[in-house]
Design a protein around this nucleic acid. Structure first.
Lengths: 205, 205
DNA sequence: TCCTCGATGTGATCGATGATTACATTCGCT
DNA sequence: AGCGAATGTAATCATCGATCACATCGAGGA
């Protein structure tokens, strides 16, 4: 029997997961810089040194946080596509922006994780699958005649850039989140039509 | 006469500017987190405490850095518009992305400064002027029949989001900077035409 | 059953950093 | 010339990431 008077046993049992959970908590509360190892440890009820038994350094902890967030995010993205299959692109874009609005602080991490040069290996497969799925959606849309017959990769990258930039503008406070849905819809609609007038012969922009 | 043997006088003379310059240097070299007050002071040849005579805290120094960068950036943006007045939008977008590619680390700061909710007062006027100038460009383009007659504000925001997202994707390493010019051109062209097929009656996306 | 060993948590401590304070030096103004 | 404000310095503190020696616990073999 332990001589400790605390209810908690000496060994936590699932400290890594608990640490990541508390780190995500801190992230959502006050941003990435607020994820301080000591505070994470304090919330988990362990000593400041304990986290280093499971994560080589703070960066490793942040990587784990990012992966956890990315898994959550990709689940939502997948659900968005599956639940609205007649307008999948708008559903995707809307879900993306909504996630950014709901968890603004996670956005910075996701950015680095999803668009970063050095993607965590654990996320590589999921990201690749997601990219292919989107490309397939585009190709299918083009076959149906719903989308312009442009290079699918170009369409995908452009759409990503648009949604991504819009999200960041919301997160940064440049745009009013109140109008989010309206603005998202209008933006995507404009992207569909293009900024050039219909009557205009293909003229460079 | 000074009893100090160093060539430098006790009073630096223009320490704030020098500190900001060295801070920008550090920023460009290794990112925002590398802007460490002590290192900035060291490069300026003053004691670690000296910067605090001119900047309340590190955040204030970073704000000054941001303003300096923003001034530089807005000058380039203005030059881009003036030097290429037949395709001002592409010139603007290209200049924006190029700046992000040339100074990737400045991009994070500019993001907060330009799109941030709490814009530094010193930048507010310039930003407002720039926004109005872009809107005027859009309205003029619409009058000439070069642009679709949509809400100018919507057009502006959408274009900003696109350029902005594209920049970030380059900076994050998601896109290969080698193809930058090609991709920028193609992306803007697609944005002009829209992703919906021409023959398609206005259908929601 | 007991004992050992590896895994996990702790306390002490170090180095770097942001920030403050008391003091020193210099400049500008009268 | 001299005085007060501005500017720079040295010393010091608190916080944080990280390391190390040591304590504690749990699982598997003798």
């Amino acid at each position: 029997m332990s001589s400790r008077e605390t209810g908690r046993p000496y060994h936590h049992g699932s400290l890594p997961e608990t640490l990541v959970a508390h780190a995500v908590e801190l992230l959502d509360e006050a941003g990435p810089e607020a994820v301080v190892v000591r505070e994470v440890a304090r919330r988990a009820g362990v000593s400041p040194a304990a986290p280093f038994r499971h994560f080589a350094d703070r960066a490793a902890l942040m990587t784990a946080v990012t992966e956890a967030v990315a898994v959550d995010f990709s689940g939502i993205q997948r659900a968005a596509v599956e639940s609205a299959d007649d307008l999948p692109f708008r559903a995707l874009g809307t879900a993306f922006v909504h996630y950014a609005l709901t968890y603004p602080h996670r956005f910075a991490l996701l950015r680095a994780a999803v668009f970063g040069a050095t993607r965590a290996p654990a996320l590589e497969a999921g990201h690749r699958a997601f990219t292919e799925a989107v490309t397939d959606l585009i190709v299918a849309g083009q076959r149906r005649g719903d989308l312009r017959a442009a290079d699918p990769r170009l369409v995908r990258v452009t759409a990503q850039a648009l949604v991504y930039g819009l999200s960041q503008m919301f997160v940064d406070g440049y745009l009013d989140p109140t109008d989010a849905d309206t603005l998202i819809t209008e933006t995507i609609a404009l992207f569909g039509l293009g900024v050039l007038p219909e009557t205009h012969p293909a003229r460079p922009t």
